[in-house]
Design a protein around this nucleic acid. Structure first.
Length: 559
RNA sequence: CGCGGGGUAGAGCAGUUGGCAGCUCGCCAGGCCCAUAACCUGGAGGCCGUGGGUUCAAGUCCCACCCCCGCAACCA
C-alpha cells in the first residue's frame, strides 16, 4: 500500500467533519472576501458529505460588536435588534443564493449562544483565570477609538499626532492568557498540523513567545450598547472576541445539548482569514485549555483539553491589484457577479485562482479568461463533443460494448489490436489513471488544497480533461466510426465514462454543473449519489445503451 | 530593528524534501473538422530582484542589500 492509498483511506474513514467559517460582522453586506472563505468551507463540506463522512458546516454572524451599533446608527435604524435581524437575514440569504450548504447559521445574539458563553465564562472563572484589574487606556478622539499600548507611538496616536490622547481609567476583567504560554508552545511543537500553512505557524509561535499577554475580556456596560453581560456582574459586558470564538461551541450544543456537543466537538477545521490567526491559534486554544480544567465536557479521556484539530488561514484578495477597501469603494458584491456568470463558475474561479493560503488578485478580466478557457473550451467542450458524437453515431445512446467494459481498458495498451487502429501514441492512461486521479483528488481535499485538486483534474498526466481531449485527437472517433465502429464505441464510451468521473470529482466545487453533466449522460445524479463513493469512483458506472438527451451548452460564451 | 507577504517568459501565477526552469492567457506556424471560431501538435520568449556564501549541484538552504505590498485606521 503506497502513501496516497493510506491518505485516501483516512479521508473516507474519518468519523466526522466539522468545519466553520468565521462569524462575520454585520456592519456591511458580504463581499468577495467573505464569499471566498465561505465557498472554501462549502466545497470541503460537500466533498466530505459525498464521501459519506457525517458533516457539520457552520457559519453565522457576530452581532455583539460596537461596530454593528455604529453601522445601525449610520443606517438610521434606532432599533438595534431590528437592524441585526435584517442584516443577519441578508447574510444567510446571500449564502443561500450562492448555493452554500451550511448546516447551521449561528447568531451571537441567540439564546443558545448566551448560554454557552455563560457556561464557558464560569468554567474559566472556576479555573482561576479571570481576575479584575484597573488599568489605563488611551482614547483617540480622531479615531474615536481606544488604542492599545502597541498602537501608541511617543504618547500619541500615529494617525492623529496633533491630537492629545485621552487617558481613561477603567476596571475590567482579564483572562490569564499568559499562564498558557508554555502549553501553547507545546501544542505547536507536538501538533504542527494545528496551524496551516506553516508560515502562519511560525508567525503564531513568535507572537506567543514574545507578545502573548493577559487579555482584557470585558468592558464597562455603561459605555457599551451591546454585548453579553458578565455572569454575576451586570456592570460589565464581555468583550466581543471572548464571546465570538465560543460560537463554534454554542452551535453544536455547548451549554444546551451535551449529547450533540459530544458528537461534534472538537471542530475539525476552523477556516479563517490571515488577519485573525492570533485569536484562533493562540487566544482560543488558551481559553479552551483554561475552561477544560473545570468542565469535563471539554476534556478527552486522557484529561487533555478538546482543542480544534486544524486552523487554516487563507490569504486575501486584492481587486485589480488594489486592496479591498470601503473608502475606495471597490468591494465586489458576489450577487452582482452571479448575474453575469453561473454560480458554479464563480466558485470554480475563487477556488482555482488562489494558491490556497496565499494572497491572490480578483479581476473580471481574469474571471472571463478562466471561464472561457478552463470551463468553456476545455471542460464544457469535451463533454459536448463526446455526447454529440455518441448521439450521432450510436442512435442517441451511450454506445453498447460488444466485448464488455473490459474492452475499454485496451485503449492504452500498446501492442494490442486496438493500438493498431490508431496512428500515434496514446496519452490516455486508462482505468488505472482514473483511479490514480481519484486518489490525488482525495489527497488534496484531505489537505484542503482544492486549488491543486482542480489543477490536477484539468491537466494531470494519464487522466485529466486535457488528456481526454487529446484522446479524441489521437483516436479520431469521427473517422474511426467508418473504419471500425466497435473501436469507436470503445473510445466514445471511455470518453463519456471519464466525463462522469470528472463530474463527480468537481461536484463539491461545481455541484450544479456536476448534476447537469450526469443528466446529460443519461444517468440519474440522485440515484448515483445514493450508491456511495465507492461506486462513484469505480470504472464502468455508465450504463451502455442509456438514452442520451440532446446536450445543452454547459458554459455558453459571452455569458 | 513593529508584524507579515512577495519580487520566476508580454500579462497572471506554480515550483513539495536542493538535481536538466513549468502552467494558463496572449503571440507565431501547422494539423483536425466530432465540438461552444471550440480541440490537438510544434515554436518564439526567462542571467528565477541584486551581491556574496554552503554544495558535485541553489529559483529552492545561509548572510547582506534593493524594491513592491498587506496589517497596525472602514475591510476576510
Amino acid at each position: 500500500m503506497d502513501k496516497t492509498t493510506i491518505l485516501t483511506y483516512s479521508l473516507t474513514m474519518k468519523n466526522k467533519f466539522y468545519v466553520t467559517t468565521p462569524i462575520y460582522y454585520v456592519n456591511d453586506k458580504p463581499h468577495i472576501g467573505s464569499t471566498y472563505t465561505t465557498v472554501v468551507a462549502d466545497a470541503l463540506a460537500r466533498a466530505h458529505r459525498l464521501r459519506g463522512v457525517p458533516t457539520m458546516f457552520l457559519t453565522g454572524t457576530d452581532e455583539n460588536s460596537q461596530k454593528n451599533v455604529e453601522a445601525a446608527e449610520k443606517a438610521g435604524e434606532k432599533d438595534l435588534q431590528k437592524y441585526l435581524d435584517s442584516m443577519a437575514q441578508i447574510w444567510s440569504q446571500t449564502w443561500k443564493e450562492l448555493g452554500i450548504s451550511f448546516d447551521d447559521f449561528i447568531r451571537t445574539t441567540e439564546e443558545r449562544h448566551h448560554k454557552a458563553v455563560e457556561r464557558f465564562w464560569k468554567a474559566v472563572e472556576k479555573s482561576g483565570d479571570i481576575y479584575k484589574k484597573e488599568y489605563e487606556r488611551s482614547y483617540c478622539v480622531g479615531c474615536e477609538e481606544f488604542k492599545t499600548p502597541f498602537e501608541v507611538k511617543d504618547g500619541r496616536c500615529p494617525l492623529h499626532p496633533n491630537k492629545e490622547l485621552q487617558i481613561v481609567q477603567e476596571e475590567n476583567y482579564f483572562f490569564r492568557a499568559s499562564a498558557y504560554k508554555d502549553e501553547l508552545l507545546k501544542l505547536y511543537h507536538e501538533h504542527p498540523e494545528f496551524i496551516q500553512p506553516v508560515s502562519r505557524l511560525n508567525e503564531t509561535r513568535n507572537y506567543v513567545k514574545d507578545a502573548f499577554e493577559d487579555f482584557s475580556i470585558s468592558r464597562e456596560a455603561k459605555k457599551l450598547s451591546c454585548g453579553i453581560p458578565v455572569p454575576g456582574d451586570d456592570s460589565q459586558r464581555i468583550y466581543v472576541w471572548f464571546d465570538a470564538l465560543i460560537n463554534y461551541m454554542s452551535a453544536v450544543g455547548y451549554g444546551t445539548d451535551d449529547k450533540m456537543f459530544a458528537k461534534w466537538w472538537p471542530a475539525t477545521l476552523h477556516l479563517v482569514g490571515k488577519d485573525i490567526i492570533k485569536f484562533h491559534c493562540a487566544l482560543w486554544p488558551a481559553m479552551i485549555m483554561s475552561a477544560a480544567k473545570s468542565d469535563e465536557l471539554l476534556r478527552n479521556e486522557d484529561e487533555s483539553p478538546k482543542l480544534p484539530e486544524h486552523v487554516f488561514a487563507h490569504g486575501f484578495f486584492t481587486i485589480n491589484g488594489q486592496k479591498i477597501s470601503k473608502s475606495l469603494g471597490n468591494a465586489i458584491d458576489p450577487l452582482d457577479l452571479v448575474k453575469e456568470y453561473p454560480i458554479d463558475a464563480i466558485r470554480y474561479f475563487l477556488l482555482r485562482e488562489i494558491t490556497f493560503g496565499e494572497d491572490g488578485d480578483f479581476s473580471l478580466a481574469r474571471l472571463a479568461e478562466r471561464y472561457n478557457a478552463d470551463l468553456g473550451n476545455t471542460f464544457g467542450n469535451l463533454v459536448n463533443r463526446a455526447i454529440s458524437m455518441s448521439r450521432k453515431y450510436f442512435d442517441n445512446k451511450v454506445p453498447s460494448l460488444a466485448s464488455g467494459i473490459e474492452s475499454t481498458f485496451d485503449i492504452q495498451r500498446s501492442g494490442h489490436s486496438a493500438q493498431q487502429t490508431f496512428d500515434g501514441p496514446i496519452s490516455w492512461g486508462g482505468k488505472d489513471a482514473v483511479d490514480t486521479l481519484w486518489q490525488s483528488v482525495d489527497q488534496y481535499i484531505e489537505s484542503n488544497r482544492l486549488d491543486l485538486a482542480l489543477e490536477t483534474i484539468w491537466g494531470g498526466e494519464g487522466c485529466s480533461l486535457i488528456v481526454a481531449n487529446r484522446l479524441v485527437e489521437e483516436t479520431k472517433p469521427f473517422k474511426l466510426i467508418k473504419e471500425n465502429p466497435e473501436q469507436a464505441a470503445i473510445v466514445l464510451y471511455t470518453l463519456l465514462e471519464a466525463c462522469r468521473h470528472f463530474a463527480w470529482m468537481i461536484e463539491p466545487i461545481m455541484p450544479n454543473i456536476a448534476e447537469e453533466i450526469i443528466r446529460q449522460l443519461g444517468q440519474d445524479p440522485i440515484a448515483e449519489r445514493k450508491q456511495g463513493i465507492k461506486y462513484l469512483q469505480s470504472w464502468g458506472g455508465l450504463k451502455p445503451g442509456s438514452e442520451l438527451p440532446e446536450p445543452k451548452i454547459l458554459f455558453p460564451r459571452n455569458a
